[in-house]
Protein backbone atom coordinates (compact mmCIF):
# COMPACT_ATOMS: atom_id res chain seq x y z
CA UNK A 1 0.00 0.00 0.00
CA UNK A 2 1.61 3.27 -1.13
CA UNK A 3 1.40 6.62 0.59
CA UNK A 4 -0.59 7.95 -2.35
CA UNK A 5 -3.24 5.74 -3.94
CA UNK A 6 -5.09 6.94 -7.00
CA UNK A 7 -7.94 4.61 -8.01
CA UNK A 8 -9.98 4.70 -11.23
CA UNK A 9 -9.86 8.48 -11.44
CA UNK A 10 -11.72 9.98 -14.39
CA UNK A 11 -12.25 13.61 -15.31
CA UNK A 12 -14.14 14.97 -18.29
CA UNK A 13 -14.13 18.57 -19.55
CA UNK A 14 -17.13 18.83 -21.86
CA UNK A 15 -16.38 16.47 -24.72
CA UNK A 16 -12.79 15.86 -23.71
CA UNK A 17 -11.92 12.88 -21.53
CA UNK A 18 -8.92 14.47 -19.78
CA UNK A 19 -8.38 11.53 -17.42
CA UNK A 20 -9.79 8.04 -17.73
CA UNK A 21 -9.29 5.22 -15.26
CA UNK A 22 -6.05 6.45 -13.84
CA UNK A 23 -4.57 4.08 -11.29
CA UNK A 24 -1.42 5.03 -9.54
CA UNK A 25 0.31 3.87 -6.41
CA UNK A 26 3.25 5.82 -5.09
CA UNK A 27 5.45 4.07 -2.56
CA UNK A 28 6.52 5.98 0.53
CA UNK A 29 9.90 7.76 0.27
CA UNK A 30 10.22 7.06 -3.42
CA UNK A 31 10.54 9.44 -6.32
CA UNK A 32 7.86 8.82 -8.89
CA UNK A 33 7.81 10.64 -12.22
CA UNK A 34 4.77 11.11 -14.42
CA UNK A 35 5.67 11.78 -18.03
CA UNK A 36 3.73 11.95 -21.24
CA UNK A 37 3.27 14.03 -24.36
CA UNK A 38 1.40 17.34 -24.33
CA UNK A 39 -2.26 16.95 -23.49
CA UNK A 40 -1.74 13.58 -21.82
CA UNK A 41 -3.48 14.80 -18.66
CA UNK A 42 -0.45 15.27 -16.40
CA UNK A 43 -1.44 18.68 -15.07
CA UNK A 44 -5.07 17.62 -14.66
CA UNK A 45 -3.92 14.71 -12.54
CA UNK A 46 -1.78 17.00 -10.40
CA UNK A 47 -4.67 19.42 -9.91
CA UNK A 48 -6.80 16.52 -8.73
CA UNK A 49 -4.14 15.54 -6.21
CA UNK A 50 -4.03 19.01 -4.61
CA UNK A 51 -7.77 19.59 -4.48
CA UNK A 52 -7.97 22.18 -7.24
CA UNK A 53 -10.10 19.84 -9.35
CA UNK A 54 -12.56 17.23 -8.17
CA UNK A 55 -12.64 14.14 -10.42
CA UNK A 56 -15.90 12.76 -11.79
CA UNK A 57 -15.09 9.22 -10.73
CA UNK A 58 -12.59 7.38 -8.60
CA UNK A 59 -10.77 8.07 -5.35
CA UNK A 60 -7.51 9.63 -4.20
CA UNK A 61 -6.20 8.49 -0.85
CA UNK A 62 -3.23 10.04 0.91
CA UNK A 63 -1.96 7.98 3.81
CA UNK A 64 -5.34 6.26 4.08
CA UNK A 65 -7.41 9.45 3.99
CA UNK A 66 -9.39 10.75 1.04
CA UNK A 67 -8.31 14.16 -0.26
CA UNK A 68 -11.25 14.62 -2.61
CA UNK A 69 -13.36 17.72 -2.05
CA UNK A 70 -10.95 19.24 0.46
CA UNK A 71 -9.72 22.80 -0.02
CA UNK A 72 -6.10 23.41 -0.96
CA UNK A 73 -4.99 24.58 2.48
CA UNK A 74 -6.49 21.52 4.18
CA UNK A 75 -4.72 19.16 1.79
CA UNK A 76 -1.50 21.01 2.44
CA UNK A 77 -1.95 20.69 6.20
CA UNK A 78 -2.25 16.90 5.69
CA UNK A 79 1.33 16.94 4.44
CA UNK A 80 1.18 17.54 0.69
CA UNK A 81 3.18 20.45 -0.71
CA UNK A 82 3.19 21.64 -4.28
CA UNK A 83 5.76 23.38 -6.46
CA UNK A 84 4.29 25.19 -9.46
CA UNK A 85 5.38 25.38 -13.06
CA UNK A 86 6.05 29.11 -12.67
CA UNK A 87 7.41 29.67 -9.16
CA UNK A 88 4.65 30.88 -6.84
CA UNK A 89 6.32 32.90 -4.12
CA UNK A 90 5.45 36.08 -2.19
CA UNK A 91 7.17 38.50 -4.54
CA UNK A 92 6.49 41.59 -2.44
CA UNK A 93 8.14 40.15 0.66
CA UNK A 94 11.76 39.50 1.56
CA UNK A 95 13.24 36.01 1.25
CA UNK A 96 13.26 35.56 5.01
CA UNK A 97 9.61 36.64 5.29
CA UNK A 98 8.75 34.19 2.52
CA UNK A 99 10.39 31.43 4.53
CA UNK A 100 8.70 32.42 7.80
CA UNK A 101 5.19 32.02 6.41
CA UNK A 102 5.33 28.21 5.94
CA UNK A 103 7.03 27.96 9.35
CA UNK A 104 4.10 29.78 10.95
CA UNK A 105 1.69 27.60 8.96
CA UNK A 106 3.39 24.47 10.26
CA UNK A 107 3.46 25.67 13.87
CA UNK A 108 0.10 27.46 14.14
CA UNK A 109 -2.15 25.73 11.62
CA UNK A 110 -4.28 27.36 8.96
CA UNK A 111 -5.30 30.39 11.05
CA UNK A 112 -4.10 32.00 14.23
CA UNK A 113 -4.72 35.53 15.42
CA UNK A 114 -1.33 36.73 16.63
CA UNK A 115 -1.68 40.42 15.89
CA UNK A 116 0.36 42.01 18.69
CA UNK A 117 3.50 39.87 18.88
CA UNK A 118 6.54 41.03 16.95
CA UNK A 119 7.21 38.45 14.23
CA UNK A 120 10.97 38.96 14.32
CA UNK A 121 10.97 38.05 18.01
CA UNK A 122 9.44 34.63 17.33
CA UNK A 123 12.86 33.13 17.69
CA UNK A 124 11.94 29.54 16.87
CA UNK A 125 10.36 30.63 13.59
CA UNK A 126 13.26 32.85 12.53
CA UNK A 127 15.81 30.14 13.39
CA UNK A 128 13.78 27.52 11.58
CA UNK A 129 13.53 29.72 8.47
CA UNK A 130 17.26 30.47 8.58
CA UNK A 131 18.11 26.80 8.94
CA UNK A 132 16.17 25.85 5.82
CA UNK A 133 17.67 28.79 3.92
CA UNK A 134 21.12 27.53 4.88
CA UNK A 135 20.14 24.01 3.77
CA UNK A 136 19.38 25.24 0.27
CA UNK A 137 22.36 27.62 0.16
CA UNK A 138 20.33 30.80 0.21
CA UNK A 139 21.43 32.24 3.54
CA UNK A 140 23.17 35.15 1.81
CA UNK A 141 19.94 36.16 0.06
CA UNK A 142 18.01 36.49 3.32
CA UNK A 143 17.17 40.18 2.93
CA UNK A 144 16.58 40.20 -0.79
CA UNK A 145 13.29 41.18 -2.27
CA UNK A 146 11.90 37.85 -3.50
CA UNK A 147 10.58 39.27 -6.79
CA UNK A 148 14.01 40.59 -7.75
CA UNK A 149 15.72 37.17 -7.82
CA UNK A 150 16.50 35.00 -10.83
CA UNK A 151 14.14 32.26 -11.98
CA UNK A 152 16.44 29.59 -10.57
CA UNK A 153 16.58 31.27 -7.15
CA UNK A 154 12.82 31.74 -7.08
CA UNK A 155 12.43 28.01 -7.74
CA UNK A 156 14.95 27.25 -4.99
CA UNK A 157 13.04 29.49 -2.58
CA UNK A 158 9.74 27.86 -3.50
CA UNK A 159 11.14 24.40 -2.84
CA UNK A 160 12.66 25.62 0.43
CA UNK A 161 9.26 27.01 1.49
CA UNK A 162 7.72 23.61 0.84
CA UNK A 163 10.48 21.88 2.80
CA UNK A 164 9.96 24.14 5.82
CA UNK A 165 6.59 22.49 6.29
CA UNK A 166 8.20 19.06 6.43
CA UNK A 167 5.74 17.62 3.94
CA UNK A 168 5.45 13.87 3.46
CA UNK A 169 4.65 14.26 -0.21
CA UNK A 170 6.17 16.88 -2.48
CA UNK A 171 4.50 17.43 -5.85
CA UNK A 172 6.58 19.13 -8.52
CA UNK A 173 4.98 20.45 -11.70
CA UNK A 174 7.69 20.78 -14.34
CA UNK A 175 10.16 22.28 -11.90
CA UNK A 176 12.73 23.11 -14.56
CA UNK A 177 10.41 24.50 -17.25
CA UNK A 178 11.89 27.57 -18.90
CA UNK A 179 15.22 27.29 -17.09
CA UNK A 180 18.72 27.61 -18.40
CA UNK A 181 20.82 24.39 -18.34
CA UNK A 182 22.86 25.54 -15.34
CA UNK A 183 19.73 26.34 -13.33
CA UNK A 184 18.22 22.99 -14.33
CA UNK A 185 21.26 21.12 -13.07
CA UNK A 186 21.24 23.11 -9.83
CA UNK A 187 17.60 22.20 -9.32
CA UNK A 188 18.35 18.51 -9.98
CA UNK A 189 21.17 18.62 -7.45
CA UNK A 190 18.91 20.30 -4.90
CA UNK A 191 16.20 17.66 -5.36
CA UNK A 192 18.78 14.85 -5.08
CA UNK A 193 20.07 16.40 -1.89
CA UNK A 194 16.54 16.63 -0.50
CA UNK A 195 15.88 13.00 -1.36
CA UNK A 196 19.01 11.79 0.36
CA UNK A 197 18.59 13.91 3.49
CA UNK A 198 14.89 13.58 4.23
CA UNK A 199 12.10 11.06 4.47
CA UNK A 200 10.01 12.46 1.69
CA UNK A 201 8.00 11.14 -1.21
CA UNK A 202 8.38 13.06 -4.44
CA UNK A 203 6.00 13.02 -7.39
CA UNK A 204 7.37 14.90 -10.35
CA UNK A 205 5.75 15.86 -13.63
CA UNK A 206 8.33 16.70 -16.22
CA UNK A 207 8.99 17.09 -19.91
CA UNK A 208 12.74 17.13 -19.63
CA UNK A 209 13.94 13.48 -19.83
CA UNK A 210 17.31 14.46 -18.41
CA UNK A 211 15.59 15.57 -15.21
CA UNK A 212 13.31 12.53 -15.10
CA UNK A 213 16.07 9.96 -15.57
CA UNK A 214 18.34 11.67 -13.02
CA UNK A 215 15.74 11.58 -10.27
CA UNK A 216 12.96 9.06 -10.72
CA UNK A 217 12.85 5.56 -9.28
CA UNK A 218 9.56 4.72 -10.97
CA UNK A 219 8.03 6.29 -14.03
CA UNK A 220 4.43 6.32 -15.17
CA UNK A 221 3.81 7.21 -18.78
CA UNK A 222 0.51 8.92 -19.37
CA UNK A 223 -1.03 9.10 -22.82
CA UNK A 224 -4.46 10.45 -23.71
CA UNK A 225 -5.58 10.54 -20.12
CA UNK A 226 -4.65 7.03 -19.02
CA UNK A 227 -1.47 5.34 -17.85
CA UNK A 228 0.31 3.51 -20.64
CA UNK A 229 3.11 1.84 -18.73
CA UNK A 230 4.60 2.01 -15.29
CA UNK A 231 8.14 0.76 -14.75
CA UNK A 232 11.69 1.59 -13.71
CA UNK A 233 13.61 4.21 -15.71
CA UNK A 234 15.83 1.55 -17.37
CA UNK A 235 12.85 -0.37 -18.72
CA UNK A 236 10.96 2.76 -19.76
CA UNK A 237 13.84 4.03 -21.90
CA UNK A 238 13.58 1.21 -24.39
CA UNK A 239 9.88 0.49 -24.10
CA UNK A 240 8.26 0.36 -27.57
CA UNK A 241 4.91 1.73 -26.37
CA UNK A 242 6.64 4.78 -24.89
CA UNK A 243 8.53 5.48 -28.10
CA UNK A 244 5.27 5.19 -29.93
CA UNK A 245 3.46 7.62 -27.67
CA UNK A 246 6.23 10.16 -27.87
CA UNK A 247 7.48 9.81 -31.41
CA UNK A 248 4.48 8.45 -33.31
CA UNK A 249 3.94 5.04 -34.85
CA UNK A 250 6.35 5.49 -37.73
CA UNK A 251 9.34 5.78 -35.44
CA UNK A 252 8.30 2.76 -33.45
Amino acid sequence: MGILEVKDVGKRFGGLQALGDVNLSVAENSCHAIIGPNGAGKSTLLNVLVGKLTPDTGSVMFDGQSVLGLSAHKINQMGISRVFQTPEIFGALSVLENMMIPCFAKRDGSFRMHAIENMMREKDIVDWADRILADVNMADKRHMHAASMSRGDKRRLEIAMCLAQEPRLLLLDEPTAGMARADTNNTIDLLKQIKSERDITIVIIEHDMHVVFSLAERITVLAQGSPLVEDTPENIKGHPKVREAYLGEAAA
Binding site: N76, F84, E88, F90, P102, F104, M161
Partner: peptide, 10 residues
Protein backbone atom coordinates in the same frame (compact mmCIF):
# COMPACT_ATOMS: atom_id res chain seq x y z
CA UNK B 1 0.12 35.81 -3.63
CA UNK B 2 -3.07 34.09 -2.48
CA UNK B 3 -2.34 30.92 -4.45
CA UNK B 4 0.89 30.33 -2.58
CA UNK B 5 -0.81 31.13 0.70
CA UNK B 6 -3.46 28.48 0.01
CA UNK B 7 -0.83 25.91 -0.94
CA UNK B 8 1.10 26.76 2.22
CA UNK B 9 -1.75 25.46 4.32
CA UNK B 10 -3.10 28.86 5.30
Amino acid sequence: NQTRLNYTGL
